[in-house]
């Protein structure tokens, strides 16, 4: 099924500057795999070598952080909105 994926500005150079993409998948993991097929290079920005979500990447399905659901195996349904949100962090040391 198709869901809407919101792409943050740092990743839009990989999506032809699109801020929203329609993508297929029954789980977040499947959606990310399909994103990589259609927009090569985006996958490694989101997941590490073992296929897990990178520490500084947050993904929300509608209003909920997938880390508090089933992570990348969180199921999604028609009409869901998936938001990719790179963490903003830094500091003096």
């Amino acid at each position: 099924m198709a869901v809407t994926v919101r792409i943050p500005t740092p990743l839009r150079k990989l999506t032809g500057n699109q801020s929203e993409i329609r993508e297929e998948g029954g789980t977040i993991r499947e959606v990310l795999k399909n994103l990589e097929v259609h927009y090569p290079g985006i996958g490694e920005r989101l997941t590490d070598e073992s296929g897990e979500l990178r520490r500084f990447i947050n993904i929300y399905v509608n209003e909920e952080d997938i880390r508090f659901q089933d992570g990348l195996d969180t199921k999604i349904k028609l009409g869901d909105e998936v938001s990719i949100i790179p963490a903003i962090a830094g500091g003096a040391e």
Binding site: N58, G91, A92, E93
Partner: peptide, 15 residues
Amino acid sequence: PVRYQMDTREQFDAM
């Protein structure tokens, strides 16, 4: 006092 990371929920709501 030497590091920050924005609260994820608040960052999501702000975006």
